[in-house]
Design a protein around this nucleic acid. Sequence first.
DNA 1: TTAGGGTTAG
Length: 668
Amino acid sequence: MLLNPSRARGLLDGIPRRRPAAACYYRAAARDRADGDEDALAAYGTMLARGARPDAYTFPPLLKAVAARRGATSACSAPAAVHAHVVKFGMCRSAHAASALVFAYASGGDGAAARAALLELELGRGASPVAWNALISGHCRGKRFGESCRSFVDMVRAGAAPTAVTYVSVLSACGKGRDLLLGAQVHKRVVESGVLTDLKVENALVDMYAECADMDSAWRVFDGMEVRNVVSWTSLVSGFARLGQVDRARDLFDGMPERDTISWTAMIDGYVQAAQFKEALEMFREMQYSNVRADEFTMVSVITACAQLGALEMGEWVRVYMRRQGIEMDVFVGNALIDMYSKCGSVERALEVFKEMHSRDKFTWTAIILGLAVNGHGEEAIDMFHRMIRVSEAPDEVTFIGVLTACTHAGLVDKGREFFLSMIHSYKIAPNLVHYGCIIDLLGRAGKITEALETIDQMPMTPNATILGTLLAACRVHGNLDVGELVAQHLLELDPDNSMVYVLLSNMYAKSNRWEDVRRLRQSIMEKGIKKEPGCSLIEMNGMIHEFVAGDRSHPMSNEIYSKLGNIITDLKNVGYFPDVTEAFVEVAEEEKQKVIYWHSEKLAIAFALLSSEPNTVIRIVKNLRMCLDCHNAIKLISGLYGREVVVRDRTRFHHFRHGFCSCKDYW
DNA sequence: TTAGGGTTAG
C-alpha cells in the first residue's frame, strides 16, 4: 500500500507551488487555511530541499493542508505521498502524525487506507480516541456520513471511550446524513456520559435534530441550555428555514442577541429556499447596513436570488461588490454566476465566468450546458458535453437534461435519442420523468406526435401533467387536433383546474375555425369557475425589481405606461399587426378582449422598459406563465420596429427576440 | 480530530 519515497516525492513535486516560502514558515502558513494550504506544501518542499529533517510536528499541519485540497487531481494520491514521508522519516510511532494520516485518508475518500492506518495504531499501543475521532470527522468532512456513523459504532464496539469531540463529530454526521435514529441514541449516550455541559456538544445536538427536521427536539435541547451562543441560534434558524417555515425562522433571527456572517447567510438562504427572492435581497441589504461582512456563502445565496428574479444588474453589482470586498470566486460562486447569467439570458457572460474559473466540477459543466441549451445554443451545449467527458468529469441525471434540451433546441432528433440511450446504457442513469419530458419535447417539436405518444406508453412511470402538457403544446404547434383533444381530456382528469389546458385547446379549436367548440369550452370554464393564474412579469430597472400583473395600474408610472403602450400598439398596427385574441380567456365583446390582450403583463413591462431604459439596451423580462401567441407576435414586431433586443424567460423556455424573429422559431 | 450558512431540472 505504501508508495516508495522517491515516487512520493515526485507526487509532492507535482502539487503546484505558489511562491517560495522559507521552511520555518510552513507551520504558520498551514494554519492560515486557504492560501496557507498551498503554502504549507510549498514550504515543505523548500524545507526538504534545504536539507531540514521533518519531525513529529511537521506532519499534522501538512496532512491537514493535503486533506483540504479537495477536487485537485493530486488530492487522492497526496495523503499516500505524505504517508510515504512519514514512514521514511520514522514518524509512524507518532500518535499525532498517525491520527492526521487517518483524517487525511478518510476525508479524501480512501476509507480502506484510513482504517489500515488506524489498525496499525491499534496493533501498536492501541488507537486513541483522538485517532477514532480523526476517522469519524474525516469521513464527515468527505461527506460520507454513513461511513462516519459506522466508524462511531465501531469505536464503541472496540471499547474506546468517546470524548466530547467524538460526540460533536458523530452528531454532525447524523445530522447531515439525516440519521435521526442514531442521533437520538447518541443523545442518550451524551446524557449518560456527562459531557452534556459542553457547549459544542449541545450545539451539535440542536443542529442534529434541526437537520433531521425534528424541530421539537431541537427546541427542547436549545431551551434546556444554560449558555447559548450564535451557533445555537443559527442552527434553529436554518432548521425552520429548511422546513419552509421562513417566518418562524425570521422571528428567531430577529430575536438573536447577536448575528454573524453565518446567521445572516442562513436567513438570506432561507428566503431563497422559500422562493422569496426579493426578501432575500432585502435581507442582504440589511446585512450590509449592519456592517456584517459577507463571504462566498452569502454571495451564492444572493446570486441565486438574482438568477431567479432575472436581476442581471443586481448580479453584476454583486460581482463588483465581491471584488471590492475581496471575496473570492470559488467554484460554488462561479457555478451560481454561470446559472445566474444563463437565467438572465446572457450566455456570453456565463461563458466568460466559465473560462475564468480555475477549478470546475460537475455542477460547473452542467450549469454551462444547461445555460447554452435553454438559450438556444444547442450545438455549443453538445460540444461542452463532449469537453466535459474529455476532462473525465462524470455527468449526472441533470447534465443529461441539459444535453437533451440542447438536442431539442437544435432540432437534433436522432442525436437526442442517441444521448438518451447512452445515458441509460453507458452511464447507467435511469431516466426520470424530466428526461422523458425532454424526449417528448424533442419528438413533439419535430412533429413526431405518434412516436411521442408511443414513448409515453412505454414509460415505466405514469405520465404527469407536465409530460402531457408538453405533448399538448406539440399538438397545438403541429395542428394535431385529434391527439390534442385526447391529451387535453387526460390532462383535465389529472388536473381539472389547469387553465393552460383550456387555453391551448381553445387555441386549437380557433385555428380550425371550430368556434362553436371554443364557445363551449369558455362556457364550461365559466361554469366551473376556473380562474386563470394571473400573468406576472418582472423587469429590473436601475437596481429595482418592477412587477407587472396583467391590467394592473399600481405602478407609479402607470399613466405614462398605458399611454406609451397605446402608441406602441398604433405603431405595430401600422406595420400589419393584428391582435390575436384566440387566447384571450374572457367571455366579453371582441373590443374588450383586445384590451385584455393589450394589457398583458409582458406588454406593460416592455412599455415601461421603452420609457425608462437607455436606447439599444437589452430588455429582459421574467414571466411566470407561458407567453401567449399575441404577445409573442407583438414582441417580435417590437424588436424589429424599435431595434431592441428583448429576452423573455417564460415558464418553460427563453425567447430571444431580435430583428423581428424569436430564437424559439415559434415553437413553445 | 470538535458545533451553524453555499451551486444544476421540475
